[in-house]
Amino acid sequence: MSHTAHIRSHRKPRRSASTIAMRAGVAGGVLSTLAVAGASGSANAAEPVTQTLELPTLTADLAAQVAQSADVTQQAAASYELQAERDAAAAKAAKEAKADLAEAKKKAAQKKKAADAARRAAAERASRTAERATLSASVGTGSSDGSGSSVGSSSSSATGSAAAVVSFVQSQVGDAYVSGGTGPNSWDCSGLVQAAFKQVNIDLPRVSQSQSTAGTQVGLDNLQPGDILYWGGAGSAYHVGVYVGDGMFVGAQNSSTGVVKASLSYDPPSGAVRVL
Rank of each mutant, 00 (worst) to 15 (best):
Q253H: 15
A126F: 13
S2P: 12
T213S: 13
R119I: 12
T129I: 03
R125K: 15
G183A: 06
A27Q: 08
G160A: 01
S263A: 07
S270A: 10
G191H: 08
G140V: 13
N254G: 01
G140I: 08
N254V: 05
Y230P: 01
G25C: 12
S208F: 07
D203N: 14
A122S: 14
V240F: 04
K95D: 09
N222M: 10
S154Y: 01
S186Q: 09
R11P: 01
D175Y: 04
A162L: 03
A163I: 01
N254R: 07
R119S: 15
Q194M: 13
K107D: 13
P268S: 11
A164G: 04
A176N: 12
L229F: 06
A17Y: 08
V244F: 03
T4D: 03
A272C: 06
V259Y: 12
L135S: 04
V260L: 00
D87E: 08
V250H: 04
R8N: 15
G160S: 01
D71L: 11
S149K: 01
K107T: 09
R14Q: 12
L192H: 04
F197D: 04
A97D: 13
N222R: 06
G191I: 04
T257H: 08
G271I: 11
Q253A: 10
A63W: 02
G232N: 09
F197S: 00
L58Y: 07
S167I: 03
L135A: 01
G152P: 02
T33V: 15
G235S: 10
T141C: 02
K198L: 10
V193I: 05
D188E: 04
V151M: 09
A39E: 00
